[in-house]
Design a binder for these strands. Structure first.
Lengths: 238, 238
DNA sequence: AACCGCGTTGCGGGAACCCGCAAGATCTCT
DNA sequence: AGAGATCTTGCGGGTTCCCGCAACGCGGTT
């Protein structure tokens, strides 16, 4: 059995290497890649289907790499291994994971024992395994009301890019007023209005972005990736 | 000679421990603390004045810890050791470092040799040493025009919290129009208007925050710290 | 079919924002 | 001290934003 490690931090790569060797004696070969595109190339060339992938990497992040890898070989088993428990990553993974594929999500702060368990469960047994810490996000985000639904999240991303309502409406195929309704519920769910007990009124748009960031609903990588999507969309509409 | 390591990541703490032992044979004792407040307590109790400090930690971050440590013992030598080259950290450090104190800033991605050099230079020789990678930020940020000055940065922080112009004016003791002038130059320096070649107009406020984030001018920890400051200020004006 | 609940859409208005213009205020240099 | 550059401030108006109100569409209930 061969395994590919995609990780750009030297410490973590060697730590992972050691844990992998301990946890899975059936592994005969461990390859390394230092960023997303290198990882894609390595997976393509060697036909590996057991991968441990860091999420935050320069150049090309783990989710984008996973998307192309899964597009080419949907049966690949990928264990994501990340510093942060950001909702944005969960959403990203949920979007790219094919039906019926094995994957996992472990935090770098997890104990070595838990990491080893996840390595066996995902790479060897093909299970799905998500760190409890992360899974808690699914239910209640750090906000009063529940989690954002898909279309709310889309609007949030566009808002975060600085688009104005009219453009969001055009891009997402909604009417202007509907976009504004989404914004209303965003403000509600992100707790933008809640601090209004004081006599301080806020700029809701900016505040929404602020809250989304500190509650880990979106993160800076999300913004960068979304900007690329936006650029493509702008280019493709003459 | 005794040294205190303040670092909450286990890998990095041990790596640092080893590098420290190699670089400075004159060190007789190495203490560890796992977050900012623990670090403050350790520095206070043991009277240590050579410290290696991680910047991003849960609870209390490195800059806040450094502030109280330096307030108590201004001659302390502190080497900051961080994952990111964020301008916000530089500004934070510049604000808390006393006249005439030794400090340094090294990235975690620096080579072991460079780390060891910095350890000797700062902790032993009392020099000031900033990673070239970071220092480049000082001059030109990732924006067309130059770096933000102090008052522009203040306004940016308030904007990022979601305050509206009137409140910013009150808090910073400027007229409303002056705040707006600051915003103008922020938009300019952050490159908000520059993308206007297209027929797409943006929400400048949100876009400014977006740009500030992706150019590492501010980061999420900045936002959290600034929120605490704001809460204090609000509480202290009846 | 009539009814109800819920999401969508248009309209309208008050508030905040963005910013050009011009009058002062302040700083700088000779 | 005087001239010129820069910064600050107020005013005014065009835009965008926020959101209440009400009409409409659509699916499910009785």
């Amino acid at each position: 059995m061969k395994v590919l490690i995609v990780e750009d931090d030297q410490f973590h790569a060697t730590y992972l290497h050691d844990a992998l060797a301990e946890a899975l004696p059936e592994v005969t070969e461990i390859l390394h890649a230092a960023d997303g595109s290198e990882g894609e190339a390595a997976a393509r060339l060697t036909g590996i289907d057991a991968i441990v992938m860091d999420l935050q990497m320069t150049h090309r992040n783990g989710i984008e790499a996973a998307r192309t890898i899964w597009a080419e070989r949907p049966q690949s088993r990928i264990l994501f291994w990340s510093n942060y428990a950001d909702d944005a990553y969960l959403r990203g993974i949920a979007q790219v994971v094919p039906e019926d594929s094995a994957y996992g999500y472990v935090l770098k702060t997890a104990s070595r024992a838990r990491l080893k368990l996840a390595l066996r469960a995902v790479l060897l047994e093909g299970q799905i395994m998500v760190d409890r810490e992360i899974h808690r996000l699914q239910r209640r985000s750090a906000s009063p009301r529940g989690r954002l639904d898909e279309s709310e999240f889309d609007v949030l991303v566009d808002l975060a890019l600085g688009l104005q309502d009219k453009l969001i409406a055009e891009r997402r195929g909604m009417s202007l007023r509907t976009v504004q309704n989404r914004l209303l519920s965003l403000y509600e769910k992100l707790g933008v209005a809640s601090g209004t007990d004081e006599a301080l009124t806020l700029n809701k748009r900016v505040r929404a972005l602020n809250r989304a960031l500190v509650t880990h609903t979106i993160n800076i990588e999300t913004l960068e990736a979304a900007q690329r999507d936006l650029d493509n969309w702008l280019a493709s509409r003459n």
